[in-house]
Design a binder for these strands. Structure first.
Lengths: 245, 245
DNA sequence: CGAGCGGCTGTGGTCGGACCACAGCATAGC
DNA sequence: GCTATGCTGTGGTCCGACCACAGCCGCTCG
């Protein structure tokens, strides 16, 4: 048993037992070291791991914001995980695209179902409408003139993540967000492969609007199909089917 | 920019550029520290992070197995990630079950499609058959008498992960494996909720065999439906719809 | 009396050096 | 030729020190 693992065990146990909770703070590194009978470097290695897993956020200085604060940020570590394993070339780009299609088409279908239910039962669904409004606002911004491919793609990524959030599954939304972030650099690098960026952007905008319309109208099958074609079409056009360039 | 992040960047860049590859080794901690102009403790923190993310495996001693060896083990860190964030109650059990249903039903459908294609085109597919054989062997072992719920469930988890692997998407298979590992403890704790464990086990065995048969026969829709019912049925029976006990 | 400013304190961030345990390997001795 | 022993390089751990940072408190000056 390596020493730093003692800290991980301790923190996990404290979390599970409720002795540590969101917003709380870990004891100082020096105090933790003395409590567990290990050295400060060992404690620091453990804190780094917790930080890498999105469990704590560290900051220097003093006050309530300083120190190792307990947070719950699964997306960032998921992104790092995917990026690194993508870099090892043991995570084929094809698998990532396939996963995106699966998660996003499911989300679209689910979201459309929620809208259909809302229409049938006259249920509230303000939350749903608000989320869709956020997505549509992103579409507006994507209509702006003079957007660079990078700016456009950042908005596009946000839009897709917002769509995934419509279904209300935080795990799937987190995975989607991480997938987008992890491949962002790769997608940008593939933009020059496109025969005509402006034409591509116009097509993407049109497809986005069709997807939103299908979801709002509760047409789940249409929404899922449109999302699938949208994603696969782009990756095919950008010849982004492989992580080897 | 913290110093240890220099190491992460360097390693990621080396991985992407092919200067580091699977099975290769990182330079020694002392060498790495000198190369980047930082101290060994900083390097060590970075190596810990890489280890926590499943990118390297460290070992003492000398020889080709010693040092920081590049590996690609995304499942272990994913499991840790999910476990920790489950503990913070920011990951509802319902979302996890929903995700399982999505990933597993997709995998089953995809795998059935592969079998159907294999039957049509007389293509090789030894790999596919071998994987299915592994899954079936797990079913045999699950037939054993006197299995404790824990032993049964471990085999069950392996079986489901094997099914997810049939579709050949390493990302989805990894996520599935991590989901199973992360909730293993929760599922076991819910076994007492079942009215009759022996009867449940018999039902699960029957359903498993039906799923395998549907996949082998290339009946994708049936396979997906059976998987969905199988998973949802169990969670409903175990009243495992919420992370609060 | 009040407001502003400057140390004080506690936090993480970094460093250099030291020693240990371990595993392989080369070499000396049998 | 074979065995055993020490050498070497690896990560694992520790110590003590110093730095940068941010909030807090008290002092000083207007």
């Amino acid at each position: 048993m390596k020493n730093y693992e003692l800290v991980l065990q301790q923190v996990e146990a404290d979390l599970a037992a409720g002795r540590l909770r969101l917003g709380g703070r870990l004891p100082g590194e020096r105090a933790l070291a003395e409590q567990l009978g290990i050295s400060r470097p060992s404690v620091r290695e453990a804190v780094r791991v917790l930080e890498a897993l999105g469990v704590v956020r560290t900051a220097t200085g003093s006050g309530p914001e300083a120190g190792a604060v307990i947070v719950a940020e699964p997306s960032a570590p998921l992104t790092a995980l995917l990026r690194l394993h993508l870099a090892t070339s043991h995570l084929p780009m094809h698998d990532i695209v396939q996963t995106r299609v699966l998660l996003e088409s499911w989300s679209a279908q689910e979201a459309a179902g929620l809208f259909a239910e809302k229409a049938r039962h006259e249920v509230a669904g303000e939350d749903l409408v608000a989320k869709l409004a956020v997505a549509e606002e992103l579409l507006e911004r994507m209509d702006g003139e003079g957007l660079s491919p990078e700016e456009f793609h950042l908005l596009d990524a946000e839009f897709h993540v917002a769509l995934a959030g419509l279904a209300g599954n935080v795990l799937i939304a987190a995975v989607m967000g991480s997938l987008r972030s992890a491949i962002h650099g790769y997608v940008l690098a593939a933009v020059p492969n496109l025969p005509n960026w402006d034409a591509t952007a116009i097509g993407l905008r049109t497809e986005h609007r069709a997807i939103v319309a299908a979801i709002r109208d509760g047409q789940g099958d249409d929404a899922a199909r449109l999302v699938t074609e949208h994603i696969e079409g782009f990756y095919r056009a950008a010849r982004l089917s492989s992580p080897t360039w």
